[in-house]
């Protein structure tokens, strides 16, 4: 079972690759749009990459609820462990 920190770390790699954000900035309390400057289209790319990486489904309707890195990590955890 992947730990919260492992998921955050893998997600940080994805955000870094797509949006060029330093991995150390991608912390649980950070907002994708306000703190990390990930725009809505990059967010779609992050979501698709995360779906592949973690083998979970993140529906379009759900994406708008993933405001912080912590929201996304929690959603992925639920998908993996639920």
């Amino acid at each position: 079972m992947a730990s919260t920190e492992e998921i955050r770390s893998d997600l940080a790699e994805i955000v870094n690759e797509i949006a060029g954000i330093p991995v150390e900035d991608v912390q649980l309390d950070k907002s994708f749009t306000d703190d990390l400057d990930v725009d809505s289209l990059s967010m779609v790319e992050v979501v698709v990459a995360a779906e592949e990486k973690f083998d979970v489904k993140i529906p379009d309707d759900e994406v708008k609820n993933l405001k912080t890195v912590g929201d996304a990590v929690a959603f992925i955890e639920r998908g993996l462990n639920g």
């Binding site: 967010m43 779609v44 790319e45 698709v48 379009d60």
Partner: peptide, 11 residues
């Protein structure tokens, strides 16, 4: 609707 279209078109 930009985001669903972007996702479908891109992938």
């Amino acid at each position: 609707e930009g985001n669903p279209v972007f996702r479908w078109a891109s992938y």
